[in-house]
Amino acid sequence: MRRAGAVAAALLLASGAMAQEGAGDPRAGRRLAGARCAVCHGNAGIAQQPDAPNLAGQNPAYLVTQLGHFRSGERRHEQMNLMARELSDAQIADLAAWYAAIEVEVTVPGR
């Protein structure tokens, strides 16, 4: 029983280290977003095109997953498949870190 607990703890520590490793650099993501993403998604992650989603404040794990799906072709969108095709894992992590770092204020409408 102790061995299973030790293995589980080691796996948990390893996954935490991998998450930190893949956390991405928001500054690098900002530069990359300005060059590749801003036309549709805006400089601050607020969409400029009516069919593009806002990315500001988005969960980084979600962004990493979706960009990976666009890159592989698993998720189909002509423009995004082309844009994501050449992205490395590090660049995807950087973009996710940048958009996640943008703080978004939400105002709930009155009743």
Rank of each mutant, 00 (worst) to 15 (best):
G5C: 09
L87A: 08
V39Q: 14
A61V: 13
Q79F: 12
A8G: 03
A90N: 00
P50Y: 12
Q91M: 08
F70H: 08
A23T: 06
L13H: 05
C37Y: 06
N81D: 09
A33E: 01
G5A: 11
Y62E: 01
G42W: 02
A35H: 13
A47K: 01
S15R: 11
A90Q: 10
P60R: 01
H77V: 07
A84T: 06
I102N: 04
E105G: 08
V39N: 12
Q79S: 13
R36M: 15
H69P: 00
E86K: 10
G29Q: 01
A61D: 14
A84Q: 03
G22R: 14
A8S: 07
S15Y: 10
A96C: 05
P60S: 05
L82M: 11
M1I: 13
N81A: 05
M80R: 06
G16D: 06
A35M: 11
V104N: 03
L55G: 00
R3N: 12
T65G: 12
G45P: 07
H41F: 06
D51T: 09
Y99W: 04
A101Y: 06
R36T: 15
A8P: 04
L63T: 06
V64F: 07
M1C: 13
E86N: 12
T65D: 13
C37I: 02
G24V: 03
N59F: 07
W98F: 12
V106G: 03
A90M: 04
T107V: 15
A8T: 03
G110M: 11
P50Q: 09
L32V: 13
